[in-house]
Amino acid sequence: MVEKGNGAGDQSGHKPATDINAFLKSEPFWLAAAFVTGLSVIFMTLVAAANAVFTLTGTELADRVDVIYKLALIGVGVVTFCTVVWRGLISARQADAQRDQIAKLAEQSRASERSNLAGLLQKGAELIAEKDHPARVAAGIASLQAVGEGSEDRYGTQAMEILADYLEGLGSRAFTSPLGKSAINALADITKRTNRWAARTISFSNDPEDYDPEYDFRFSAITGVFEVHYGGGSFLSEEFSAKTTSPTGYRFDRTTFDECEINMRCGQWDRCTFETVKFTVADFRRSTKGTYENCDFSGCSVFAPETFPDLRAGRNWCDPKNPPVFSRGAKDFDWTHKLDTAPTADFIDDDDDGSLFGPSK
């Protein structure tokens, strides 16, 4: 019984405070307070003034009128205060109502957009599957790109996954057909504009044993997915850097790179051939059984320098005024034991200043 009484006491102790707060935030209370105060001031002012006029004269009357005037001013101030609070409560209520309305409209807009994106995603998936109708596939790619660049991460990622699956389904034709190139560009644009990427690892293979010299097949870099595997094939004048390919990772097997710019930390390079390549970052822990010919390592940032092989046999070189640098700070090293110090004739372009990649900056 005692505990029950204490519980009731606690409840009765908290309830009045809540009631008072609610009462003080009540618009009718402050309106009534202003009304009652105003009437009281008028009534008391009239009564006091009448009493002073009929009972006092001279200096006493003047003093009494002065007192009545000051008290009336105080009353007017109280009325003004109550009125200001009342109007403030009304404004706050209206502002809250507007915020609630805006929030509801925003939620309705988001719900409508989600519904539209879901419908567009479904339609895009249906269109891109109609491989016998190129026009519909193109419409499907455009629809999926619109979803990918939309405001909903979930639908955007799903759209990118559908595009990635479509590309993998095309195989080598993904790099030669107009629709494949459109899908590759769509993935790149979505990633560039939204920083989204598909949780997909896709693979492409073009075995050198099946290579037709009359059919100059080349890969191109795909971005916007978790990882891409390339087997065989070749790349021409592609750039593999953290800026151009992030967050996509790469794995290459028996692939040829010609006149490319490469950061080796962007992928894993197995039995690859590099010809007249400009290396910006070298990490030979990521490369196995590679072949290097006429490659430029000038200014290259080198990781794990103990793994850097002797590449002079392949006529690979660096500018002696701009040698490779160790990633963890400059160190004195004689690069003539690893690289030539001038490009070969095969590397020089007669149209520029002597470097395949233009004048050094």
Score class of each variant (00 low, 15 high):
243 K>M: 10
216 D>V: 09
327 S>Y: 03
226 F>H: 11
232 G>F: 05
304 A>W: 08
218 R>K: 15
316 N>Q: 07
325 V>G: 09
304 A>K: 08
260 C>P: 13
271 R>P: 00
211 Y>C: 04
307 T>E: 15
195 N>V: 04
220 S>T: 15
314 G>R: 09
242 A>E: 15
200 R>V: 06
268 Q>K: 12
255 T>D: 01
222 I>D: 00
213 P>I: 10
222 I>W: 01
259 E>Y: 06
284 F>S: 01
307 T>Y: 11
285 R>M: 04
199 A>N: 12
269 W>K: 01
310 D>I: 12
289 K>D: 15
312 R>Q: 14
301 S>P: 00
293 E>V: 14
297 F>H: 02
325 V>R: 15
227 E>I: 01
262 I>A: 03
287 S>F: 02
288 T>V: 12
265 R>K: 08
200 R>F: 01
282 A>P: 03
242 A>G: 15
260 C>H: 00
282 A>R: 00
228 V>C: 07
323 P>W: 08
295 C>R: 04
315 R>W: 11
305 P>A: 11
270 D>F: 13
223 T>M: 04
268 Q>N: 07
211 Y>A: 15
261 E>H: 00
257 F>C: 02
285 R>S: 14
309 P>K: 13
208 P>S: 08
214 E>R: 11
236 L>S: 10
247 P>G: 11
195 N>D: 13
217 F>I: 10
285 R>C: 04
262 I>L: 15
220 S>D: 14
245 T>F: 00
256 T>E: 13
295 C>N: 13
192 K>N: 10
228 V>W: 02
240 F>C: 10
255 T>I: 05
322 N>Y: 12
245 T>D: 05
267 G>I: 03
224 G>E: 02
244 T>H: 02
243 K>C: 04
327 S>C: 08
197 W>Y: 15
292 Y>S: 06
210 D>P: 00
192 K>F: 07
310 D>M: 12
319 D>H: 10
